[in-house]
Amino acid sequence: MLHMLNEIFTIYSQYSGTGIIMVLFFMALIYIAMSEKDRSNQTILLYGSIVLIIFIFFPLFYYLYITFVDASTYWRLWWLVPVGIGLAYAGANLIREHSLTGLMLILVILFLGGESIYSGELSGEIDLAQNAYQIPQNVIDIVDDIKANEVDEVTFAAFPPEMLIYVRQYDATLRLPYGREMLDERWSVGNGFYDQMSSEMLDFEILAEKCRYNSVRFIVVNAMKPKLNVPQDYGFELMAQHGMYSIYVFWGV
């Protein structure tokens, strides 16, 4: 019971990050409790939020959720709490009553508490789009090059880890011997080919074996990585160079 409450608090603290926005939300709830006269607004914003928060912290529900659903997604229940609506409602009332001071205070707290979506520190990798696909241009160039030189009815190609999420977003006709599942330890079941492609030193003797076994015609490797042996000795031919990436065609399939 206590350890479950502890886990729920841990999930809450992960969700709330700096905690300032949530503290502000709880203050907004107190403000609504003291000043709100409208019955429906009270019902949804105040009592609704309280009931939802109590429910999220309810150990029995947590136990049922992690047993029958998935422990790693419990934080999504916080999406149900109307944090944004509650804060904006209280804020709009405060600004109306205390004009500019209220607005300035809320802006200052917002800048301190949250982070701009475009700063990218918490929201993931963010960059200016290089094309309308919003896929890195080097991935598009490499895939186009492979498609222009394909010799098989179905083309198999192996890519380095950093390209795995993009390749089949751009061209779903390419077949990969391993995919994005390799990047998540929850799903990854281990793949010798991926291990070789992601290792610090490229061993083309083993890569040739893997290509032959998986019918892979093309491999894309980071040209900066040291090579244990000469690719050409094992049936690879350098087809093209795109920035820091080399495309090799394998003739041993």
Partner: peptide, 8 residues
């Protein structure tokens, strides 16, 4: 500015 964590 609501990116107070990656889960929001």
């Amino acid at each position: 500015f609501g990116v107070y964590s990656r889960y929001t």
